[in-house]
Amino acid sequence: MTDLVQAQDPVVMGVLNVTPDSFSDGGRYADVDAAVAHGVRLHSDGAHLVDVGGESTRPGADRVDAETEVARVLPVVRELTAAGVPVSIDTTRARVAEAVLAAGADVVNDVSGGLADPDMARVVRDAGCPWVLMHWRGHSRRMRDLARYTDVVADVRAELAHRVDEALRAGVAADRIIVDPGLGFAKTAEHNWELSARLPELLDLGHPLLFGASRKSYLGQLLADPAGQPRATDGRAAATVATSVLAVAAGAWGVRVHDVRGTVDALAVWRATGRPRLVPTAPPYPGPPDGRGPVVGAGRAGR
């Protein structure tokens, strides 16, 4: 596979949840044949990687055991790689990652940033594969209680820097590391918006950055109807595309999305218009949006 870590074009990672309880498409691809067909479709739509996950990490989700997770993902990964589809494995467990890498997966996407399983660094080091280190503070059951920051961007940056340092100390090559701010993981909607607005501060870490806003609840809140009912997950595609293009324009290495084709099309427009880049402006982040425009005079979230 082409070394995507060094890719000059934005990398699109397509989401494939082979779970019964993921927040957006849980149960839709729990069957192996359905999962493989969808993974092939994501790749044909333009996904550079298909990210296969066998354990839901939505807020409040219960954990499954390693045996269940392996049983869900391994047959799907084997068939996808046999079909020539590049695969990443969305897991926090070294045992799962090791099994799936042996079956042909190319990348480990670890939402815990290596915190959930200290043996993950060894697996990644020995495989020599790219490792996505996401900002994380705890498992799904308790993540809402952990969304407390002095300055969310500064705190996330510092905690990600520590995860990177730990990975390097474990022998993982610097050019194998990708970082992810972990939108929605121990983050409020305000935190997500501020991280998005100040993305260049996270790029200062010096590693490629993966951005994953796809269909998340804060987009549903932004698009709520006049009665305050959040937009359903299947109505968040346009907002997801917008966040993805803005993240790439701010310097993100890649985006993780459910709706691959719309994202790929939007990035084609971005390239055709000269790959414009967002330049940080002097005024401070104005606060979370309410659908009517910026909040004048609002302070930064978490302060």
Rank of each mutant, 00 (worst) to 15 (best):
L133V: 11
A34F: 04
D265G: 05
H48G: 15
R41F: 06
H191L: 06
S244F: 03
P286K: 03
A105P: 02
T68W: 03
G287M: 02
E55C: 08
Y29E: 04
T81N: 05
D119N: 12
K187G: 06
A239I: 03
P130A: 02
T92K: 09
D33T: 15
R141M: 10
A186M: 08
L195I: 15
G302R: 05
H258M: 03
L267F: 10
E159P: 08
A249E: 09
T57E: 05
G54K: 00
G128H: 03
A35S: 02
Q8W: 11
P20S: 10
L146N: 06
R277D: 11
A167D: 02
A105H: 00
F23Y: 14
L210N: 08
D204E: 15
Q6K: 15
L219S: 05
S196H: 15
P10M: 01
A7E: 12
G184E: 12
P284S: 12
R303M: 10
V5H: 11
K187W: 09
V132H: 10
G14L: 07
T68E: 15
I178G: 07
V245T: 01
R125S: 02
L195F: 10
A197D: 13
R72M: 09
A197S: 13
D45W: 13
A66H: 12
G113C: 04
E79Y: 00
V156A: 09
H43F: 12
R300M: 11
A197T: 04
T188L: 07
D204Q: 13
P288T: 02
A266Y: 08
M13G: 01
L219C: 07
C129L: 10
H207G: 04
L223A: 14
Q8G: 15
M1C: 12
A103F: 00
E159F: 01
V11C: 12
R256W: 02
P276G: 05
T92Y: 15
T19K: 10
L278D: 08
Y218D: 06
R256S: 00
A249L: 08
L4P: 11
V248P: 12
G184I: 10
A252Y: 07
Y29H: 14
R169P: 08
T281S: 14
G128W: 00
G302H: 04
P288Q: 04
